[in-house]
Nucleic acid binder design. Sequence first.
DNA 1: TTGTTGACCTCTT
DNA 2: CAAGAGGCCAACA
Length: 131
Amino acid sequence: MAKRKNDKEQLSILLPSGRKESSFFEQVYEVTRIIPSGRVTTYGAIAAYLGTKKSARMVGWAMSGAHNQTNSVPAQRVVNRNGMLSGSSHFATPTLMQELLENEGCTIENNRVVNFEKVFWNPEEELKIDN
DNA sequence: TTGTTGACCTCTT
DNA sequence: CAAGAGGCCAACA
């Protein structure tokens, strides 16, 4: 009975036991943390994976407090649908996001990720559960 | 308490 | 093809 419709169930395995009902923000942080280095994803992809595709805005808003989290959240790996570093302005320095991505092997040009489609990391594809 | 804003996405005109 | 509006949820005044 693979109920892939309930994406939240998939997320439960990523979350620490004893807390199956985590906040939307924590879910965003969890997914963002598991993004492999050198890869990037979008707010909408994360939102869709959480089951709230239309809540892409909240994903970005959650990132606003990502730096407040005890664990480092690779928010630099989260870009918008166009592959642009829209959140770069919210980093410590406007170029920090680009520097971090370049340091991970990504190429940034004009505030945009080069080969964005190739480095795009889709949680629904990578974290999908078979059987 | 309501109203506005926000690191967005998608549909409609 | 470009511009506008709706939708989502949470924090702030």
